[in-house]
């Protein structure tokens, strides 16, 4: 354009040099404010996590100055409030292990089954109806689940109907109901992960003569593995950390649990019970709460770390 104007000699354009571009723009204060708020939000989550950790560690140090780590982790008698106190955490761990394992045996198959049904088999109409119903389960307060476990599952189903040899409480009843509680968590997150796998992969699989189950298990599942493992880990964390159900239905005597029909006190169950009592701040009983809390925190952290490694190793990223 400009060369044409030059050749043609003076033209009307000559008198008007192009305006100097104004790239400076106007200051956008709003954006700065938003960025500041977002940064604060991000920093706050880290600060709170660190704060919780410190709040757990400081009283725990007081505890471990009186009880050795070995005695705490490997001792088999838990009696912090007796005159002849003993601080072996193994009985609490066995109860937690039982309730968590039973809960996961219920929640993983049911949750993944529901996720596969919703993501791979159900019509979009059925999915739109079923998923919200499933998620309602996640909204039931845990204290309601606890009463359900105590009154219905333990008293009616296990004792009256099945005539099992069990007392007022059992880790089985608590574990089963906890499993039901976790199903929506695992199902919902796994379903999201599976639905996010591109349908081009499903079509490619179908075009090679694979049936739906083969496509699901060999293509969709490995591709969605990181989401599915995240769902299971969240389920495990909830099972280990769940308090109300075990406090109500699992029992309150800290003894090593050797079978599903026995009662037992879990780590969270102990914290809930003891925290309601009148432990004096700074007493060893009081510090015990934090030591158990720190152990819970550590266990969850280890499970997370393992799951991240597992996902890195086996995931088929798309």
């Amino acid at each position: 354009m400009s060369s044409v104007a030059t050749k043609a000699g003076p033209s009307e354009r000559v008198g008007r040099p192009p305006a100097i571009p104004q790239f400076a723009g106007r200051p956008r204060y709003g954006e700065k404010v938003i960025r500041f708020v977002l940064r604060i939000a991000a920093i706050l989550t880290v600060v709170i996590t660190v704060g919780i950790l410190i709040a757990l560690i400081v009283p725990s140090l007081g505890f471990f100055s009186q009880v050795s780590v070995g005695e705490f982790l490997f001792g088999t008698r838990w009696a912090p409030r007796f005159a002849e106190a003993s601080f072996g955490v193994i009985p609490l761990i066995t109860a937690t292990l039982w309730t968590t394992t039973i809960a996961l045996l219920v929640a993983i198959p049911l949750g993944l089954g529901a996720a596969i049904l919703l993501a791979e088999y159900a019509s979009s109409k059925a999915r739109k109806t079923l998923k919200p119903i499933l998620e309602i389960l996640a909204g039931v307060p845990t204290v309601v689940y606890g009463l359900f476990a105590l009154q219905f599952v333990q008293a009616t189903v296990l004792r009256d109907w099945l005539q099992l040899d069990t007392g007022a409480f059992s880790v089985l009843a608590a574990g089963l109901v906890m499993g039901v509680m976790i199903v929506p968590t695992i199902a919902s997150i796994s379903e999201d992960a599976m639905s996010a796998v591109p349908s081009a992969l499903r079509q490619g699989s179908a075009a090679l003569g694979a049936n739906r189950m083969q496509t699901t298990m060999r293509v969709v599942f490995p591709a969605a593995l990181s989401g599915i493992v995240a769902a299971i880990v969240l389920g495990i964390s909830r099972a280990i950390g769940e308090t109300m159900i075990v406090a109500i239905a699992a029992g309150s005597q800290a003894r090593i649990v050797t079978g599903p029909l026995e009662q037992g006190q879990t780590m969270t169950g102990f914290i809930a019970n003891a925290a309601l009592g009148d432990s004096r701040v700074g007493s060893i009983e009081y510090d015990t709460l934090f030591a158990v809390g720190l152990l819970l925190f550590g266990i969850t952290l280890i499970i997370n770390a393992i799951s991240i490694r597992f996902v890195r190793r086996f995931r088929e990223a798309y």
Partner: peptide
């Protein structure tokens, strides 16, 4: 589909 295969518009290899 085993006898009549298909190649798609966008390459869709499996993440394997």
């Amino acid at each position: 589909r085993r006898r009549i295969g298909m190649v798609f518009q966008k390459p869709n290899p499996f993440p394997k």
